[in-house]
Design a binder for these strands. Structure first.
Lengths: 224, 224
DNA sequence: TACCTATTCAATAAAATACTTGAATAGATA
DNA sequence: TATCTATTCAAGTATTTTATTGAATAGGTA
């Protein structure tokens, strides 16, 4: 193999990865898959894409080895092929926010609804929860919670928040989190709770590898 | 801003980064820029692209905020806009090599010339050099060495290796490194040295952030 | 067996991207 | 001032990527 041929081979492979990440639709799919395995249909629904289009994108992602699929009964489950894929997503997001300052501004505006949704850092939340002054709720779908969640978090999907109000402690702070800094579920939850008198906050991120240092039990996703 | 509008905004920005990284030409440009600032002409020469094409790619990279440019006299110098860009390159390469196992195989075949170029890990090299049993040579261009290099490394660009043979110690091992695991300069150097009786090795990587933990002096790139 | 569901495939049209060529610009130098 | 050099711009063509649609497949289920 000639030197140039070798270069083409190497750079061709490197860019397979970036190419797969370079479409907004695919990036969004990966973002959802970072929450846990999902079927094509569900991904299509969550991203508002057609099923065929979703399937095609997933195909592209599989060819780039960013996702893997498995079959259970009649459903094909897709999931991230490697933890480093999630890292790549994280790093790309962080870089984007750093290099395009208005991104961070817009995100803050949107997720805090112009100031009426207070944000809490992971570090502070950890302290509040540990000392018993606050409870942590995970407002994502149940299976996403099951796949992986923050220590001591309770699962209350956004849609079931109203019917679970009675289970929330009255005097304590309530800290909600969802898929991450760009996900609006937690903000919706906080607004809903504040309207009902709770001292609610949203977490500034979701359950990432760096926020979860504990081991994950393969059986039920419970963090020890 | 509507929820969907917000999503489009966010994912649109994220993918600006990946899109910029998704062309082999641009990836290669960034790879060279990770060694230090360079002019358009030089980049064009090193990548064997036309100057106009190189300039256009650099333009695209600047719009994605991956590179920044400055002007000195009649030359425009381009450089990475952020250290995280280098991290992104690293992570992408690592992921590609992990997910496409034949990549690693081909790389090993090429860079070790089928076994005649022994490789040494950074950790081992550090020990050998510290104990005085080996010398470390940086075979990249001088300005790349000046921009950043490994501790205790001596600069001997590949083209000047022959005329500097007399300065290499006879009884010691010689460890060569260049831009990284996919760069062939170090391999060329090792073959050249072995033909002349030296016990030469190539390092398995280049001067990355993780291999350099020391502070870099802004004046001359010397690592303390 | 026939039927149903989830997923993939194939074909198309529209849109974006890549590389080439030649001209334009803007600073230095003579 | 004229000239030279490095870089960018603009236009054109070829290629690649995208979303849509409707058909095909392949496992379950009745």
């Amino acid at each position: 193999m000639e030197a140039r041929e070798f270069k083409n081979f190497a750079y061709g492979h490197f860019t397979k990865i970036s190419k797969a990440l370079s479409s907004p639709g695919r990036f969004e799919l990966l973002d959802y898959l970072a929450q846990g395995p999902k079927t094509v249909e569900r991904l299509a629904k969550e991203t508002h894409m057609s099923v065929a289009n979703t399937s095609q994108h997933l195909q592209a992602l599989r060819e780039a080895r960013l996702v893997a699929s498995s079959k259970v009964k009649n459903h094909h489950y897709y999931e991230l092929a490697d933890n480093e894929v999630a890292e790549l997503l994280q790093l790309t997001k962080r870089l984007a926010e750093r290099q395009f300052p208005d991104m961070g501004e817009v995100r803050t505006m949107e997720t805090t609804a112009g100031g009426s949704v207070p944000v809490m850092s992971s570090a502070e939340a950890l302290e509040e929860v540990a000392s018993g002054r606050a409870v942590l709720i995970d407002v994502r779908a149940e299976d996403e919670y099951a796949s992986r969640h923050l220590t001591d978090a309770v699962s209350i999907p956004l849609a079931q928040l109203e019917e679970n109000l009675e289970h929330l402690p009255i005097g304590k702070k309530v800290i909600a989190y969802c898929r991450g800094a760009y996900c609006l579920y937690a903000s919706d939850a906080v607004r809903f709770l504040r309207e009902r008198g709770f001292e609610a906050y949203r977490l500034d991120e979701g359950p990432t590898d760096s926020s979860i240092s504990q081991e994950i039990d393969a059986d039920d996703g419970e963090i020890r």
